[in-house]
């Protein structure tokens, strides 16, 4: 009699354990399903994910390129015309360049040009399959940012 009771008790215990385990398993499956639901389809918010350095250098190359096209090219030609046309226009250019706002804008375009140049050289080197490995690509994009800013600062010192 005691033997059967003991058997029943153990059996009940085992069943309870199985139920608990199954419940737990179900919960895990539910959570996984929810996670999967959240992840697919994935919508990447470009402003919320932190961009890798090479991506920042790349988009800055594009933005600086567009700004160098407009208003960069007409401003460059206008400046060249003032430089060469006559003594009066040359003097007007010098006077214009005394204006701190104009100096700042010129320096901004110097930075656009230098960034575009440095990033462009980096892309040419990448085209030749040099520095394609992730570590090298990261390091070179950091150098592009540093060198273009440093040269812009040097140009600023010359301007002022």
């Amino acid at each position: 009699m005691t033997c059967i009771k003991e058997y029943n008790r153990l059996h009940l215990l085992a069943v309870k354990r199985i139920v608990i385990a199954l419940n737990y398993h179900n919960k895990v499956l539910c959570m996984e399903a929810k996670l999967l639901k959240k992840q697919r389809p994935k919508h990447l918010n470009l402003f919320k994910i932190s961009q890798p350095l090479p991506a920042i250098v790349s988009i800055m190359h594009r933005i600086s390129g567009v700004l160098l096209f407009f208003p960069g090219i007409p401003l460059l030609l206008y400046g060249l015309q003032m430089l060469l046309e006559s003594a009066d226009s040359f003097q007007a250019l010098l006077t214009l360049m005394q204006n701190p706002v104009v100096k700042g804008l010129v320096l901004l375009f110097v930075w656009f040009s230098l960034h575009h140049l440095c990033a462009g050289i980096r892309f040419l080197v990448l085209d030749l399959h040099y520095g394609v490995a992730l570590a090298h690509a990261r390091a070179s994009s950091k150098w592009v940012l540093v060198v273009s800013v440093a040269l812009t600062l040097a140009a600023g010192i010359v301007l002022w």
């Binding site: 594009r62 390129g65 567009v66 096209f69 090219i73």
Partner: peptide
Amino acid sequence: FLASLMWHAWVGVRNV
């Protein structure tokens, strides 16, 4: 130089 600049700008702006 400036003709190269115009051509370069055309390819770049067209891509954008």
